[in-house]
Structure formats: structure tokens, C-alpha cells
Design a protein around this nucleic acid. Structure first.
Lengths: 225, 225
DNA sequence: CTTCTACAATAAATATTCTCATACTTAAAA
DNA sequence: TTTTAAGTATGAGAATATTTATTGTAGAAG
């Protein structure tokens, strides 16, 4: 799960990043319109937090842009303004929610969760595939009702696989999605191999089938067929 | 102090648990032979109450088992039978006392106390461990004959440690025992840490060894070994 | 005023992640 | 078919990160 923060107050951005990161999301941030614009065209996000007041442009235009190029991305508007007008305008443009400064990080977290749940899984809290049940919110995976204790990396990889069921996934895209853009090593997949090995082992030990197929030279495919 | 109840009548077991728990003991219970057998191999008890009539086996076999794996544990036989045979057989196998149903809880309590006193401290009112002397009645602790002034919490914790000598104690059970089950905070051990720190400091200052060992992730163990 | 609890900084223990050496597979060339 | 080279899997252990414990300080409760 990838979150994008557009906020010019560096301190606020930092504390959001830290908190949200701790919740298991990957976080990118931008502190102005221009930087945000660039990132949006390059990287797919699950949810974006947009401050309406930016030094070099209006957050509303950003909302418009995101809706256009990444319709699947959820949007939460952050604003110091308490005017109804802006909020309405934001929501009209396609934002999913808004928060007025100051707000509690826990509140923000709840809204993000709610939006992601609504968007990605049509409100369903669990993804069920045969003997496997995945609860993205709780970061939990069950096999035959029993908990499989996956580490964060293992879980992220697994969720990425599952949400691309029956689709071939390149190793590059795994690194991009799980480790983020700033990942240093795109030429060494050893650690990916290791995580996938451990993931497979844990799942199989708990009684699940190995649905992860290796596609030689390309990557993997999570397939139940 | 840990008491084990083996009794298939759930109501009776519950009322004993509640009463005995209120007397400051930690109580575990099992409602059949199989469950009892398992617990006995896992947990050390100071006293066990055994109903002779169990749905899946004889309490007498349980008495035998306990005597074998936990010789230090006191045993009280509970039975509806009033036949002399069973009682004698039970006492022959190593039980310390017996009660015929129905009985008063106060009576049960007295027997437990008596057995524990007899077993653990040879009837003495003071607990002496190397340089440390504890008088639970007076709420007094001496190190090398000199009084150590412990606060109430410190004393309660210390007594709980000492009466579970050589046994691992969870932090939960410390809170349960010293603060009571209705304690709101089971997720914050900061105050427990502080009390243990102060307790250790006072004891060491007076010349006692630090017999309190930390068991990482679990709790503590008061050990002289 | 004593005792208790909360908080923050640091230390210790453990868990996770990554690196690396090595073994095994696969697909295509010889 | 055999060989070969690149891709993938795996185990062990080093490097990091996270969790849990200790301690000092200070404020709250009684």
C-alpha cells in the first residue's frame, strides 16, 4: 500500500510520514505542486493526502490531476481553512474525504484505512482464496483459519501477489511496490528470492498450496489454476 | 501461590476459583482427566484439589501422577463418595487431606493454608532465604537482621516473587496479583518496572543479592540458584 | 510528605532483513 | 542429447531494525 503526501509544512509531513510508515504503508511525499505533479505521473498510489495551500499552486488542481491520471487512487484533502467552500469543491472534484488542521494522526490513519478498504476491496475486509484468508487492514494472513505470522516484507510481497492474481509480475515491479522507488538495488534480487523462499515455506508449513509460480526470466505469478 | 482445581462440576469449580482467587492465590482449573494431565506436566502448583470422580478417568491416577512429577505439590482430595476405602487409598497414594462434598469454602481455604504452610515453610511464619527474612504477617523484610523499609507495592511484589521462588512469573500475573484483576492497564508495565527497580535498589543497598532475574518477553523469576 | 504512576532516554535482547556462497533449474546452444 | 550459461532456490550468518527492559526524573495521588 502506497501513500502520497503533499504538504509544504515539512514538520507535519515528517510526522505523518513516520506515523503512517509505522502502520505498514510505503510513504512518498512532496512539498510543492511541481514535485507532486511529477510523482503522480510516475508512481501509482493507493491514497493521496493533499494540502490545499501550496506555495506554487492549488491543491485542488492536484486533486483534478490525480483523478484524471490515477482514478483508482483515494484522495484526502488536508486544509487549515475551515471554509465550507473549499471542502465542497474538493469533494466535488473527486476527493474522498477531508481533514481540517490540526488533526490527530490516529484520525488520519482511520480515514486512510477506510478509503483504501472502500476502493480496493469494495468494502470487503477480507480476501479469501481457497484455504487462504487475507486481512490487509490487520496485516494478517490465515491458512485454514490459523494465523501465519508473516513479517512485513513477506506480507507486502504476498499482498502484491494476491492483488495481481493470475497475472505475471516482474521482479522489478515487486521491488518497486514493496521497497519503493528509492530502492538502491535493481540489479540484485537475492533478497527478493530469500523473502519469497521464506514466504513460501511459512505458507506451505501451515498447509497452503504453493500458488506462487516462478516465471523463468521474468518473475512470478500467483495462480490457483 | 498457585492452586490447581480438577473438578467436572463447572459451577463448583467456578465458585471455588472465585473464592480462592479472592484469597490471593492464582488459580487454574481443569474439568477432566485429560486436561488436568496436560496442565500438570506444564505448570508447577503449590496445591491441587482433585475430584476423584472424573468423566474420563480416576482422580486417584491423577494423585499418583502429581506425586510423581510434582512431589512438592500438596494434594487435597474432593469426593462425593463417603466410603472409607477411597479416602484411605487417596491418602496412601500421597494426598495430604480430603474433603467430602458438600463442604464450606472456608473449610477448604483453611486446609489449603495448612497444607501450604506445612509444605512450603515447615509451619514457620517466617520465610528465610539466605540473608533475607520475610515476615508476611508483619509485612516486614529483613536483610542480615536489618529492616528494609519497603512500600506496600514493593512488599506485595516481593512476596509474590518469593512465594513463587524458582518459578517464572509473567508481568500479567504480577499485575493480576498485586493490583487485582480489575486493573485497567494490562498494556503498560512502566509502573511495574519502576517498582521493581526501586525494590531491587533497596534490597541491594541493604546487602542482599539481586535474586530477581528478568525473563525477556515474559516476566521475572526469583531464583537463588 | 510519602508513595505511586507517567514519561523519556538509554541499554539489552530479539526479530527482521539483507548478503553471500552454494546448489539446483531452466532454456537454449553445441 | 549433452553442454553451458543464466536464472532461481536455499541455508547460514552479518547487519539493521524493532521490541522489551532499566533507570532517572518529575508530576499526581493520597
Amino acid at each position: 500500500m502506497r501513500i502520497f503526501i503533499v504538504e509544504d509544512e515539512k514538520e507535519l509531513a515528517a510526522s505523518i510520514t513516520e506515523f503512517i510508515g509505522g502502520e505498514g504503508y510505503l510513504v512518498d511525499s512532496a512539498c510543492n505542486f511541481a514535485a507532486a505533479e511529477e510523482k503522480i505521473t510516475l508512481i501509482e498510489y493507493d491514497c493521496a493526502l493533499i494540502d490545499l495551500m501550496l506555495p506554487d499552486g492549488s491543491g485542488l488542481d492536484l486533486v483534478k490531476l490525480i483523478k484524471k491520471v490515477q482514478p483508482q487512487c483515494g484522495i484526502i484533502i488536508i486544509t487549515a481553512k475551515n471554509t465550507l467552500d473549499d471542502k465542497i469543491m474538493g469533494l466535488d472534484l473527486g476527493a474522498d474525504d477531508y481533514l481540517t488542521k490540526p488533526f490527530h494522526l490516529a484520525e488520519l490513519n482511520a480515514r486512510i484505512k477506510s478509503i483504501i478498504r472502500r476502493r480496493n476491496f469494495g468494502g470487503a475486509k477480507e480476501i479469501i482464496i481457497n484455504e487462504i484468508t487475507i486481512n490487509p487492514e490487520k496485516h494478517e494472513v490465515l491458512v485454514n483459519e490459523e494465523l501465519v505470522e508473516l513479517t512485513r516484507r513477506e506480507f507486502d510481497i504476498f499482498l502484491f501477489f494476491v492483488s495481481n492474481k493470475e497475472r505475471v509480475i516482474t521482479k522489478d515491479s515487486i521491488i518497486e511496490h514493496v521497497w519503493g522507488e528509492d530502492s538502491n538495488a535493481f540489479d540484485n534480487f537475492d533478497f527478493v528470492y530469500t523473502h519469497i523462499k521464506n514466504l513460501r515455506k511459512k505458507m506451505i508449513e501451515r498447509g497452503a498450496k504453493d500458488y506462487i509460480r516462478s516465471i523463468y526470466g521474468i518473475g512470478y505469478k500467483f495462480s490457483t489454476k
